[in-house]
Each structure stands twice: as C-alpha cells, then as structure tokens.
C-alpha cells in the first residue's frame, strides 16, 4: 500500500493537470517520484527538468548512466529505482554479473575500465566522502569536465529521487521488493 496514492487525473487542479501532461511527455506513466512530487506541481516540473537534462539530453554513455543509477539505488535500497532501471541497465550493455554483484552489495569484477572508474567514484560519493583527488583526476582524464559533471550530477539526482521514494515508501510498479 502506498503512503500517498497518486492523484487521479480527474481530481487534479488545472495546474497539476498541465504539469502532469508536460512531465508525462515521453514517459508511459507518471509513476514513482513524480507521483509524489506532483502534489507540488512546480516542484515536479523543476525536478523533471533536471531529469531531462541528464537522462534525455545528457551525453554520457547510457551504460554508464545506468551503472550510476543502479549503484545509487542499491546504496539507498530504493526498490522503485532498481525495478525500473535494472532492465535498462541490461539493455544498455551492463553485464548480468555486474548487476548481480551490485544487487548482492559486492564489488563487481569489471572488464571495462570506464565502468570500474564510474563505479568507484559513485561509491565514494555514496559513502559521504569528498571525491579523492586521484579519482577526480582520472575522471577528468577519461571523460573531461562536461561528462564528469554529468556523472556526479546523476549520482546526486538519483540520491534526491531515492530520498523522496524512501521517504514516501513508494512501491515498485509490480509491488515486489527488489532486494532484501
């Protein structure tokens, strides 16, 4: 049972309906974090803007984007994010072994150096640490400043999304828990 049921479309204020339709855009359903944020339409709109900048318009390889998302989701045990992004991680090229290791909270054995670096950076940030100078330098060398900015902003964005999802105990689309 959800703490906060999504507002039925026919009960939305005109402003909520307008932003609902705008945020829905290319998405199939307005679920998860947006089911909560839509209670404050301007907030949903601004959050959707941040998602679009990184997810739709970002230049970062989707495989690395999904690796960051799953790493953050596992740190927070954000079931909804994991349920939605696990298939996206697979279809973007993350290996089954990598995904299963993350699910089990083990460090994956990466065969690709870019994945190892992005996982290491995200893990440091989830641990509340300042990113080490060595890791920062590697990110800049491998990706340049613009993609490094996308990498850490994605880690931040999904931390924010996970905070909202866990604060409202938002269920997964199928209602299942994705990890113990």
């Amino acid at each position: 049972m959800a703490r906060l049921d999504p507002l039925p479309v026919d009960q939305m204020s005109p402003k909520q309906k307008a932003i609902h339709d705008k945020v829905l855009g290319t998405r199939k359903v307005l679920g998860g974090p947006f089911s909560v944020l839509l209670r404050h339409p301007a907030l949903a709109e601004a959050a959707s803007g941040v998602v679009d900048v990184l997810r739709r318009d970002g230049k970062l390889d989707k495989r690395l984007y999904e690796l960051i998302v799953l790493t953050v989701a596992r740190h927070w045990s954000a079931h909804y994010v994991w349920a939605v992004h696990e298939p996206l991680g697979r279809s973007s090229g993350l290996s089954d072994d990598t995904i299963e290791a993350m699910r089990a909270r083990k460090k994956p054995t990466f065969s690709k150096a870019d994945e190892a670096l992005v996982f290491d950076a995200t893990t440091q940030l989830m641990g509340g640490r300042v990113l080490s100078q060595a890791t920062y330098d590697q990110l800049i060398k491998q990706f340049g400043l613009d993609l490094t900015l996308e990498i850490v902003a994605t880690a931040g964005l999904y931390s924010m999304i996970s905070t909202v999802l866990n604060g409202f105990d938002v269920p997964t689309p199928g209602g299942e828990k994705t990890f113990a």
Binding site: R39, L125, R129, L131, V152, M160, S162, T163
Partner: peptide, 26 residues
C-alpha cells in the same frame, strides 16, 4: 500536511544532491 511533507522530504533530497556535487568538486 501532505504537501508540506512533500516539500520537507524533497528538501532533504535536494541537499543530498547539492552535497554530492560540492564533494565531487571539493
């Protein structure tokens, strides 16, 4: 209220995001 709780928890989330960003660039 529900609306205030949305704002409150979103504020926790937003400053988690800000903190990660600041710590990335020290």
């Amino acid at each position: 209220g529900v609306e205030g709780t949305v704002d409150l928890i979103s504020t926790v989330g937003y400053y988690n995001m800000v903190g990660i960003f600041l710590k990335s660039f020290d």
